[in-house]
Design a protein around this nucleic acid. Sequence first.
DNA 1: CGTGCTCTTGAGGGTGATCAAGGATGGTGG
DNA 2: CCACCATCCTTGATCACCCTCAAGAGCACG
Lengths: 238, 238
Amino acid sequence: MISGKFLLGRGRHELSDEEQRVLEDSIGSVRQVAARKQIVRAGVIIDTSTLLLEGFVCRYMDDRDGQRQLVAVHVPGDFVDLHAFPMRRLDHDIATLGPVKIACYDHQTLETITERYPHLTRKLWFSTLLDAAMHREWIFRLGRLGAEGRVAHLFCELNERLEMVGLAADGRYMLPMTQPDIAEASGLTGVHVNRVLRSLREKNLLTFKANEVCILDRKALAAVAEFEPQYLYGSNGP
Amino acid sequence: MISGKFLLGRGRHELSDEEQRVLEDSIGSVRQVAARKQIVRAGVIIDTSTLLLEGFVCRYMDDRDGQRQLVAVHVPGDFVDLHAFPMRRLDHDIATLGPVKIACYDHQTLETITERYPHLTRKLWFSTLLDAAMHREWIFRLGRLGAEGRVAHLFCELNERLEMVGLAADGRYMLPMTQPDIAEASGLTGVHVNRVLRSLREKNLLTFKANEVCILDRKALAAVAEFEPQYLYGSNGP
DNA sequence: CGTGCTCTTGAGGGTGATCAAGGATGGTGG
DNA sequence: CCACCATCCTTGATCACCCTCAAGAGCACG
């Protein structure tokens, strides 16, 4: 089942077999996209939404000088732009980080689902609200943490999310982001991210080299990040 | 119709008369709450959601030292915590700014709506996604703007939103926020907000005194704020 | 008429930006 | 296969923005 990572670790088991089948059968097409390609442009009306199957995708907005601010990073199992279904057009751009595989859902198909499967609809709704919860945490990250905390927080969040879908273990995972990418996600410059990473490395908290993240001291890193994962609404939570 | 501000300026006219009646008849109770009171606490399972009728409400998270970061400000017509319906518990606290009047909706009633009125459900879903869009803009604000831009952006956004519900005109509106509140929304300190406000005043862009905001030069203020209101999905947009 | 809170202003310090330059890496085309 | 070019990584020096600390004035409320 290629849609099998959707809501994995976040109550996927609450979906009935029929609902899982509906999700799988509603896939319009599966596409591969190369690294660093834009896949949705802000303001354009769209009539499909994409479930991320493999790889990483980011959402971002540009400032006046063309500087990017990442507003979200998506991992496999995320319904990247499901919110385009109720909204019709997006207020931001979406691009791939590494190469990705995505499944496309026609909005017409989704509309049929909302008419026939209210419980599944509520789960789809829920999944868009997870994005909002992560947005809020990012606001907190940028508003209240210093540079080290921001970077640490990002790595903590991704570790947690990737663990849920089986793509991280023992605090290790692959992440196709550069230091400038981290900077764009953290409201910092690439230069400063470099210094922060060195500092985290020298404190034996974390290494990040050749796209591989190794969290060496999870507890201490979480402390630096003021990271408390409840906002991710994982099934294993309280 | 006391629920009449819901989605006003954002496609309320797309709701049929029947849907508007359902919304109105589904109100469980109407309550008044004093200024500076917490109305929802993070982590607690809740079974009602609240539509803001009058006054202002904020959502916030605390850092380790108990410092607040506001993640949202709500104005009349906003369904403050509708996302609690699919999520069951919230990841943050909610408190009033000034005194407010709110309408409460039982989640059981909302569940009935999702079963009988798929189109209305999609509109409710949409309204929660507006919050997410504003979250994204706040991430941008904190990540890419300096102090002046952040404060200016907040005032621009509130002006736009209050205009939609008839609570702002000519760039003037009442806002029960203090300078420390603005600081908590902008990732700054109260002291620095004070300096920023003075600077904005000296540039003849804006005044903020005794809870009244007067935008003197809308265009110039929007330029400082890099404010582009498409993300608010107003009906009058392109 | 105190008692807080907010607003205001000043002085000094630290975090992270900017500017600059060299080395490493990887993709592309000859 | 190798030359070339772009991008990333790394480090140093300097500077600006915003925080911290401090203190007084204004104002609402009991």
